[in-house]
Simulated scan of single mutants.
Amino acid sequence: MPRRLLQRYLPHPETLRRQRSLRCVSHLTDTPSLWLLSRRSVANACFVGLFSALLPIPFQMLVAAGGAWLVRCNLPLSVGLVWITNPLTMPLIYYGNYRLGAWLLDAPVRAAPERLSTQWVAEQLLDILPALMTGSVVAAVVVGLAGNLIIRLLWRWQVSRSWKRRARRRRQRHASRDEARGSDPERA
């Protein structure tokens, strides 16, 4: 079941409450719905986490935590999904978002220099920012909704598969019990 898999990897609320750095917000994490592992809370956490991850803003984890608190979805999952955009994947993702935004705004795409520097980014920021933000918001909504839908479908498929497996085992148990009763001469 998906719940068991997620419980294995997600931190326990008590573990986070004991962290010194998180004591100032521990009263916010006391809400049980932030730790619930249901199809709805996990799917919504997937949306919040992916949405926050694709925005080119600082403090994405705080945005994801705030979003999880507002939507009442699984907090650790939404914060953990932000790490999809890590220092290795960030340039590729944001460049793709920029290209998407430039295409949507019908703006020319700026060529990257041979040596990327912070000075070049600072000089070009005002020119690339509208396309980057537009592409990032569109990609964040689309990827977030797709993640939400995929989680809901996978969860439903897994539960359905589990129910069918249990029904099959139950039928086999009943069949073997009926067979044992039928072959026992004393019971007949």
Rank of each mutant, 00 (worst) to 15 (best):
G182W: 15
Y98L: 08
L54V: 08
L5E: 07
V42K: 11
L36C: 10
G135W: 08
W103E: 05
I151K: 02
M133A: 13
L28K: 13
L16Q: 12
Y9H: 09
R156Y: 06
L50I: 14
P13V: 04
C73Y: 10
S33I: 02
I84N: 10
P13A: 05
E14Y: 03
A122C: 03
P87Q: 00
V143Y: 07
S26Y: 05
T31I: 06
V82F: 15
S160F: 02
P11E: 12
P108Y: 01
N86G: 00
S38M: 04
R3C: 00
A53Q: 13
W155T: 09
V63Y: 02
R156M: 08
V79D: 13
V63L: 15
Y98S: 02
Q60Y: 03
S117G: 14
S33H: 05
R177D: 11
D127S: 01
G49V: 10
R165S: 10
W35K: 04
D106A: 04
A65N: 14
C46A: 13
T29R: 01
R20W: 15
L105Q: 04
W155A: 10
S176C: 13
R168W: 08
L132G: 02
P32N: 05
V25D: 00
S160V: 04
S136L: 06
T29Y: 00
A102S: 14
A175L: 11
G49F: 11
D184V: 09
L125T: 04
P11V: 11
D106R: 07
M1R: 14
A140Q: 08
Y94T: 13
R99H: 09
A122Y: 04
W69R: 06
L149K: 06
T134M: 09
D184I: 12
L10R: 09
L129Q: 02
L100A: 12
T89Q: 12
Y94V: 13
M133G: 05
G101M: 06
A175T: 01
A112G: 03
A53W: 08
R156S: 13
S162D: 09
A53Y: 11
L54W: 15
W69L: 14
I93S: 08
Q158H: 09
L34R: 08
P113I: 10
I84F: 14
C24F: 07
C73G: 10
D178T: 14
P32R: 05
A131I: 01
R161E: 13
I57M: 01
G80F: 11
